[in-house]
Amino acid sequence: MAVRRYQDYLDKNRLPHMWCPGCGDGIILRAYTEALVELDLAPKEVVTVTGIGCWGKADDYLTTQAFHGTHGRALAFATGIKLANPDLHVVTLMGDGDAVTIGGNHFIHAARRNIDLTAIVTNNYNYGMTGGQYSATTPLESKTTTSPKGTPEPGFNVCLLAEAAGANFVARTTAYHATALKNLIKDAITHKGFSLVEVISPCPTYFGRFNGNSSAVNMFNWLKDSAVPISKYGKMTAEEQAERFAVGTLVKKERPDFYTTYRRIHRASQQPKGGE
């Protein structure tokens, strides 16, 4: 067995990364590569599919096979890659813009089809790369560069959306909880079917600054304080829940994935019929 280190999945010639100080993306990238180490997946066995945005730049630093596509379409590209070669491990890295705003349609349909791939969605509640505009996860009345007085739209709950659409595995954690994050990514990759890990992540440069929290340390503390294990979260009052979010494995189902079902249906129809 080849012994790999997380550094083997990173191209040191392409570092340091471009992300701002205090951003969660570097932590998430490390957790992803450590998960690959522990799963003993060689770079050639993994296709990392990225979209556009800060987190969409992650493939620049990775030594896995990679597909850096257009904004919002990562899951559609990934669906083709996975179905064309089901032996590959396909992991999509998307921000809240890619996953549930411009790409929301592909997100719900990939979950509904239960394509056997993993989506690691970094949710920093805004479009960081383009200057801090609001996305479909930005909380109601938050200030962004396109909602200077506060956004009139409520944000999606990404995990509920995935669950409602039919995802087999849904988990949430934060950039603060690095070890839990690594373990959830491992579980997601190992679990057959559509798997989502939502990672709440700080963007002190824009979202934090516009909403009274420009210190990265404060934002990480906020993540620590807001994240409540699912078992405990369920016992909270609605008032307590409003200020917090549940973390951990939220959904784990064994619904057959698309490819398995597709093959079963067509194998059955190709069985020679008696008497013909």
């Binding site: 669906t79 083709g80 890659i81 996975k82």
Partner: peptide
């Protein structure tokens, strides 16, 4: 399906072309 291929009806045309680009990159 009769030639061991994949037919996939996508959610829209944006996804349609994206998924065939992905499939081609993976060799089909």
């Amino acid at each position: 399906p009769q030639v061991d291929g994949i037919f996939l009806q996508m959610e829209d045309e944006i996804g349609s072309i994206a998924t065939i680009i992905g499939a081609s990159a993976a060799g089909k």
